[in-house]
């Protein structure tokens, strides 16, 4: 156990010190570590008077260095493009400040607020927030963008406005399946934390979605969501039927 712990600290420390050196090179001042995900290190920092977030895609020791570099560069650029396109649609999201593809890093402005997940029960008009989120999601889908990880943890509330963050798993695609996954993930994140609020908030979300895309698209996506859930792939709510109890 101890050996494993120190090994991990080694890997983590190396990653963080690499991120810290990169920020220094960019003239950014480290404020706090926001998270270490599967793919990237996310750091709050001060950069040219901006309160900023730096996202650094870390190298992976398990893949060929050339492939690793290609992937990290490509994904950094993709995320930057997604942020720009989403902004063009007028959707509240972080503003891209700077991108350095060769260093696999991008900077965006920090959204000072609270995660939607943590404040749902305290919202004045939660239906209105979800209607707006549905509208934004519909706009993105209509423009050929999917978020890829659309959950209540990736929405930040600032003075009643809902900002969508983290486009790291996003893509430019018109595939119905991926649109369905966006809507399904939002629904599932609601179910896991606020099951009693699901019916009104989900229907408000889909009303907003319909405003952006029309009734036809709403029906198609709703059907897709049902299909995704029936596959049981991501679904945790199907309970075990009562089995013969372990008697005798």
């Amino acid at each position: 156990m101890e050996e494993r712990g120190s090994g991990e600290e080694g890997a983590r420390a190396l990653t963080l010190s690499a991120a810290s050196r990169l920020l220094e090179d960019l003239g950014a001042e480290w404020i706090s570590l926001l998270g270490v995900g599967a793919e990237a290190v996310v750091v709050r920092c001060r950069w040219r008077s901006f309160d900023a977030v730096a996202k650094y895609r870390v190298p992976k020791p398990y893949r060929d260095e050339r492939l690793d570099s290609v992937l990290r560069r490509r994904r950094t650029v993709l995320e930057a493009k997604l942020l720009i396109e989403v902004k063009k649609l007028g959707i509240p999201a972080p503003t891209l400040l700077y991108v350095e593809p060769e260093l696999h890093i991008l900077l965006m402005d920090f959204i000072p607020g609270t995660r939607l997940r943590d404040v749902i029960v305290r919202l004045d008009k939660p239906e209105e927030v979800f209607r707006k989120l549905g509208f934004y999601t519909g706009l993105m889908h209509e423009r050929g963008i999917v978020h890829g990880d659309l959950t209540t943890s990736n929405v930040v509330m600032v003075n009643g406005d809902a900002y969508i963050i983290d486009f790291g798993l996003g893509a430019f695609t018109n595939e119905l399946e991926e649109q369905g996954v966006d809507v399904h993930l939002m629904l599932r994140s609601l179910e896991s934390t606020h099951p009693s609020l699901v019916p009104p908030l989900y229907s408000a979300f889909m009303d907003g979605y319909e405003e952006a895309r029309g009734a036809e698209a709403r029906r198609a996506v709703e059907e897709k969501v049902v299909e995704i859930r029936r596959r049981g792939r991501y679904v945790a709510e199907r309970r075990l039927k009562a089995r013969r109890s372990a008697s005798t």
Binding site: G37, A38, E39, K60, Y62, R63, D64, L67, D68
Partner: peptide, 18 residues
């Protein structure tokens, strides 16, 4: 082999973190 295994390990990594 590098490409196929890297794809696989990356998805496993996401699942592990998740």
């Amino acid at each position: 082999i590098e490409t196929a295994y890297s794809m696989l390990v990356e998805v496993a990594e996401r699942a592990l973190v998740h």
